[in-house]
Simulated assay, not measured.
Amino acid sequence: MMTLRPMVVLPPLIFAALAVLFYWGMGRDDPNALPSTREGGPVPGLTLTAFDGATPFTRDDLASGEVVLVNFWASWCGPCRAEHPQLVAMAEEGIPIYGINYKDEPAKARNFLDELGDPYDRLAADPNGRTGLDWGLYGVPETFVIAGDGTVIKRFAGPITEGILEAIIRPAIAKAEAHQ
Rank of each mutant, 00 (worst) to 15 (best):
L4C: 03
R5S: 15
L10D: 04
L10Q: 02
L10A: 13
P12F: 01
L13V: 14
L13C: 12
L13R: 00
I14P: 07
A16Q: 07
A16S: 12
A19W: 08
A19H: 08
L21K: 07
F22T: 08
Y23A: 14
W24Q: 12
G25Q: 15
M26Y: 10
M26R: 07
G27W: 11
G27N: 03
R28F: 05
D30N: 13
A33G: 04
A33M: 13
L34S: 00
P35V: 10
T37G: 08
T37I: 05
R38A: 02
G40Y: 05
G41N: 05
G41R: 09
G41Y: 06
G41I: 02
P42F: 03
G45P: 04
T47V: 13
T49W: 09
T49I: 06
A54P: 11
A54S: 15
T55L: 15
F57D: 07
R59V: 13
D61H: 04
A63V: 01
E66Q: 13
V67Q: 10
V67A: 09
V67G: 12
V68H: 04
F72K: 03
F72I: 01
W73Y: 14
S75Q: 08
G78K: 12
G78N: 04
P79F: 07
P79H: 06
C80F: 01
C80Y: 07
R81A: 14
A82K: 13
A82F: 12
H84K: 07
Q86M: 13
Q86P: 04
V88E: 09
A91F: 05
A91P: 01
E92Y: 09
E92K: 14
I97R: 11
I100W: 08
I100R: 00
N101I: 02
K103D: 11
P106G: 02
P106D: 03
R110Y: 01
R110H: 08
N111G: 13
F112S: 02
L113T: 07
E115A: 05
L116E: 06
L116F: 10
P119G: 05
Y120W: 04
D121H: 10
D121P: 00
D121Y: 08
R122A: 08
A125F: 02
G129A: 14
G129P: 13
R130L: 13
L133V: 11
D134H: 10
D134A: 14
W135T: 05
W135S: 09
G136K: 06
G139L: 08
G139H: 03
V140H: 00
P141V: 06
P141C: 09
P141Q: 04
E142K: 06
T143D: 01
T143N: 00
I146Y: 10
I146G: 07
A147T: 02
A147C: 08
A147F: 01
D149H: 00
D149A: 04
G150Y: 05
T151F: 03
T151E: 11
V152P: 01
I153S: 03
I153T: 08
R155H: 12
A157I: 08
G158E: 01
I160Y: 00
T161V: 05
E162D: 14
E162I: 00
I164K: 11
I164V: 15
L165E: 12
R170P: 07
R170F: 09
P171E: 10
A172Q: 03
A172T: 08
A174C: 12
K175D: 15
K175T: 14
A176H: 14
H179P: 13
H179M: 15
H179T: 15
Q180V: 15
Q180H: 14
